[in-house]
């Protein structure tokens, strides 16, 4: 299941269920979907997690259903999505447990 994700840096499958071993009392999961102007999910978008100082923290590629997921920490984060359909941003304040967000993208 998630063994392959723990040793290195490749992003795990963004559509996979959360691992059963995950302790949501401790982990801060930020998850959601990238959507285009028509509201359709965007696959293959690059989602960047930026911290409260706008410093890059991590990046994943969205699943066929447009999903992304980060394991972060409580605090304020910016999600920045890059795609062939355009780019977009959203800011959220995350707490422990699962935090959901939608990132809209549109041609600039």
């Amino acid at each position: 299941m998630t063994a392959s994700t723990t040793a290195g840096c490749a992003a795990p499958d963004q559509a996979a269920p959360l691992p059963a071993s995950l302790d949501l009392e401790k982990e801060t999961v930020i998850t959601g979907v990238v959507r285009d102007a028509a509201g359709e999910p965007v696959t293959g978008a690059y989602v960047r997690l930026l911290d409260s100082t706008d410093e890059f923290t991590a990046e994943v590629v969205t699943s066929p259903a447009g999903q992304f997921r980060f394991f972060a920490a409580p605090g304020t984060w910016r999600l920045r999505a890059l795609s062939r359909h355009g780019n977009g941003d959203t800011v959220l304040t995350a707490s422990r447990g699962v935090n959901e967000a939608t990132v809209p993208v549109a041609v600039d």
């Binding site: 998630t2 994700t5 723990t6 840096c9 992003a11 795990p12 691992p19 071993s21 995950l22 401790k26 982990e27 997690l49 911290d51 100082t53 410093e55 890059f56 923290t57 991590a58 990046e59 994943v60 997921r69 980060f70 394991f71 972060a72 920490a73």
Partner: peptide
């Protein structure tokens, strides 16, 4: 590494579970 890894607030990049 990212600032949070440097400071010791995270053990790995934020797209991975932090169980190290």
């Amino acid at each position: 590494r990212s600032p949070d890894e440097y400071a010791g607030r995270l053990l790995a990049p934020a797209h991975l579970p932090q169980e190290q």
